[in-house]
Simulated assay, not measured.
Amino acid sequence: MAEPIIETSHLTKSFKGFKAVDDISLRVEAESIHALIGANGAGKTTCFNLLTKFLRPSDGTIHFKGRDITSLKPDRVARLGMVRSFQISAVFGQLTVLENVKLALQRHRGESYDFWSSVRRLDHLRGRAMELLADVGLTDAADTPAAELPYGRKRALELATTLALDPEVMLLDEPMAGMGTEDVGRIADLIRSVSRGRTVLMVEHNLGVVAELCDRITVLARGGVLVEGDYATVSRDERVIESYIGGAQHA
């Protein structure tokens, strides 16, 4: 078995006695696309928050590339190469698409960024920013204010700003949330493209996307791991059908 790039051991998070994440031991292999799925309340987003240090675990450990990061702060984890996106698109609507990516590049390079300064100070980043926009199909929208983008293209811009941080691991929290069928297909293609040479760990409810994209799937239920494997394995598991697929049908 390949060495994991992310590994947790007995990871637990309790809130006033309620275990939102309960004794999760997770292995994510390098350069794979790995999904966390499960019904609402299964612990997926809490697990993401623990991995990226927005929450501190009640128990257990987290290792990244063999290093114990359990006690590190979020900014330190991001600088090590593990960067996440959120369910709600996080872009600066008043800035152009290109300016958003320039700011992300500036932050990655450790430069201070002052919103009151002329954006011409960032012109030296234009070349790389345009490359990233080409990667996500937004070259034609470079001078468009981000607020004017349709929802699916805003998510593409968020991918570009995430890539600007040059992550080894991208954690994507429901990247297809709120999208129509056409946008879902476009963003799935983008994730597949940008995952080359990187690791992607994603929370996703769209089982069609999970089946198409993911090498490995971990199904969570009540804060713990229910089953893990490829899509063919987990989709046949009676516990998954009852807990996740069946639950969704009756929701």
Rank of each mutant, 00 (worst) to 15 (best):
L171E: 11
T199P: 02
L50H: 05
L190K: 01
Q94W: 04
E7H: 13
M176G: 00
V203N: 03
D68N: 15
M202D: 04
R216Q: 13
D135T: 13
R121Q: 14
H10C: 10
D123W: 11
A211M: 11
K13N: 12
M202Y: 07
F18I: 15
N100V: 07
A141V: 08
A248D: 06
T144K: 12
D140N: 13
L95V: 07
P74N: 06
I33P: 00
T46A: 12
L171Y: 13
K73A: 13
V91K: 02
F48N: 02
K73R: 11
Q249R: 12
A134V: 04
K73Y: 10
V184R: 01
I33D: 00
S117Q: 15
D123P: 03
T199Q: 06
L157K: 05
H63W: 14
G229T: 06
V119Y: 12
A142V: 10
A211F: 04
A221Y: 08
M1K: 11
G41D: 02
R236D: 14
R79Q: 10
N40H: 02
D68W: 15
A251F: 03
L213T: 01
T218F: 06
H34G: 02
E242H: 15
E204Q: 05
L80S: 04
I5P: 00
G229P: 01
V240M: 06
E148D: 13
I241W: 04
S118C: 13
Y151H: 15
S243I: 04
G229C: 09
K19I: 10
L133E: 03
A90M: 13
F86R: 03
G185C: 01
G197I: 05
S112F: 11
M1T: 13
E148P: 00
T70C: 13
R79I: 01
R67V: 15
L213P: 00
S9P: 00
K154I: 06
L26T: 04
R216L: 12
G127S: 08
L26S: 06
F48D: 02
A141L: 11
V119G: 09
M179Q: 12
E238N: 14
V21Y: 05
T8H: 03
K13V: 13
V225M: 15
L138A: 11
S235G: 03
L36C: 00
Q87D: 06
G246F: 11
I62Y: 08
G41C: 05
E131Y: 02
T8S: 09
R109F: 12
T61Y: 15
F48G: 01
A39E: 09
R196T: 11
D173K: 09
L163W: 03
R76W: 04
H10G: 10
I62S: 06
I245D: 04
L72C: 05
F48Y: 13
V225L: 12
C47L: 15
K19D: 13
G185T: 02
D237M: 12
S243Q: 07
R56F: 14
D75M: 07
K73G: 09
N40A: 02
D189I: 04
E168P: 02
L207N: 04
V200I: 14
N206I: 05
K44M: 07
K53Q: 15
